[in-house]
Amino acid sequence: MEESEQLKKIKAGDVRTASRLIRNLEDEIPEAKNALKRIFLHTGKAHVVGITGSPGAGKSTLVDALITSYRKKGDTVGVLAVDPTSPFTGGAILGDRIRMQKHAEDSGVFVRSLATRGALGGLSKAVGDAVHVLDVMGKNLILIETVGAGQQEVDIINHSHTVIVVLVPGMGDDIQAIKAGMMEIADIFVINKADRDGANKLYNELVAMLNMAHEFPGGWRPPIIKIGNCFDAVSFAQSVDKLAATVADHYRCLEETGLLGDRMKRKAMVELGESLRDAILSPILKEMTQSGEMDLFVEKLLKKEADPYTIAEEAARRYLK
């Protein structure tokens, strides 16, 4: 009964209820998971856009500008901004929001910072859940900003319909452009700070990289958008409007070519996989840790009295019947 009250409030856009639920999901409180069960069935309306790129590339500033651009057109926007958790203390400084504070009072915008809490793929474990909450709040567009990412943090593709990879000039030679990983996941490339030296070189490297591709799914060749100095306000805003329009074009392309279904399917598979892992593995790990079994095994590994592969196989036989 209480849960449907909660759902009603979130649907009505109640910030307090939504932000508390996101927090309870982050903290993995069981009642929050139950609430999510109800919410899930009402999701799937928002266009989810991932923004990734190296630290300092300008992701937060771009997100801020994209919010402005979308709000001009009357879209409502939810933002999830992820920053890293300290591996030593568990603490975090979540500073993406600094760039977006001018939207703090706009009721059409909801910005939430998340710490990675040990997740390695450039996001936090709760991102998928938080997307559902913002979706049910009725946000048309959900922007996910990853941690400052390097080459390998590509989890964002499992959570978004459109991925923007933000690059800046001067980050390395042309071999970087043909490496696997982040360069492969872009639906749209942004060359940010394009007023700086090396922007044209980077542009040419990207074009060369794209020319080598055998095919583009759905015929979508990732466009490359140059965005200059954000202090040059007028041209900056124009470039960002162009980016926003390209994001919309991409979504339309996904819809028309049926690729949207594929992305939804990928997302659903990842969600199911994660939930299965949580439901099956977590209780076993918990039990093994609490019973002291885990310490015993580690001790054995260190003394070379056992190997992790046999231990895992035996544990699987014991727990999974």
Partner: peptide, 17 residues
Amino acid sequence: RDAGYEVIYTGVHQTPE
């Protein structure tokens, strides 16, 4: 942060609102 808290910093020049 070093004490293990998650800290959100707003930046300068903020209104109470």
